[in-house]
Design a protein around this nucleic acid. Sequence first.
DNA 1: GTCTATAGCCAGATAGAC
DNA 2: GTCTATCTGGCTATAGAC
Lengths: 203, 203
Amino acid sequence: MKETDHTIEAKILNAAENVFQRKGMDGARMQEIANEAGINKALLHYYFRSKQLLFEAVFKKAFSLLAPQLNKILNDDSSVEDKIKNFSFNYISFISEHPYLPNFIISELNRNPNFFLTIKEPHGFPRLDKFKKQVETDVEKGILKPIKAEQLFMNIIALNVFPFIGKPLIKSITNVDEETFNALLEERKTQVATFIIDAIKTR
Amino acid sequence: MKETDHTIEAKILNAAENVFQRKGMDGARMQEIANEAGINKALLHYYFRSKQLLFEAVFKKAFSLLAPQLNKILNDDSSVEDKIKNFSFNYISFISEHPYLPNFIISELNRNPNFFLTIKEPHGFPRLDKFKKQVETDVEKGILKPIKAEQLFMNIIALNVFPFIGKPLIKSITNVDEETFNALLEERKTQVATFIIDAIKTR
DNA sequence: GTCTATAGCCAGATAGAC
DNA sequence: GTCTATCTGGCTATAGAC
């Protein structure tokens, strides 16, 4: 079933997505989800049995959107440099369509780090292995300065994801308005990749 | 009053810190705070009137710990390079003493971005101005490659803060255990600064 | 399948004894 | 100031009519 289906189940899932991603598991209210879906609260339980199960459906769907993005770094066949450029360029557009997604995933994982164990089935779950070999090879060849794949991966994710998660903090400290902040993000589409590549490439 | 005071008020604040920072405003329970403080639930209300006010006290205290750290980048008199080195080196130790702090601040600000407006009094609130001038001067002098202070600041914070906030996600994807993850963090004490400086320094 | 009504519980807040 | 007991409201979940 596609998420754009007009079935009740899809309506509920979309409404739940909105509410859970903005308010989190603890802050979300079944009543608000029902309202947003334009149906009755009892129907939520009919389709998903409990708040917990509805939440898990939302979380899994959210992660299934994020995973392919991460896999573009980890499992593509292009060069490290190209991966960094492409990922950094595309990530902002991706997030603009799902603005609450990074914070939702990160926050809920911190609330319950064990929750991931349930999802960690092989089904497209991002794994570092291939990227790790690629980075090691490039370092051996002298294309890249010595760096562990884990560190490089952390840096790529950090530079791309953090501006969205830390937006309220950054906006306050830099004292920029919404429009200017968005312009900074737009700049980052190319600048982040340049920044990383300048940091790791041998010359 | 110092936080290490053995007054009831301090005991409550410390207990509230633990619970709120781990569970968030919505997930925290007054009963749990009372238990952790070793006192009765009614006393919480006697001292802080409401959950909301107790939460705000905790949040302000948390931010008053974080602010001086940020000001080491923004308002010190040392060079940009030295600031980056010192901040990146010290930040991990700082967080080890307050492991839930970054996630707490970020999550709660996302839950309620307006909340900052209450705190944003001049009292030591981190401001970008001085750092901005410094970066602009260094760029003009040709010491640094062209980069906006806002972007550089975002990058420094992202690279240092994200590993803590994204820890459960990163651990899953890189498939490392707690011990190895901590070793990676330890490495970052020096590697992050090198990474940033390689990215921005002209040669 | 979809609704209304309500059960049952739990949490924040307060009353009032000491 | 500190406690026990309790009020009150709101929330998840279910029963039961249609």
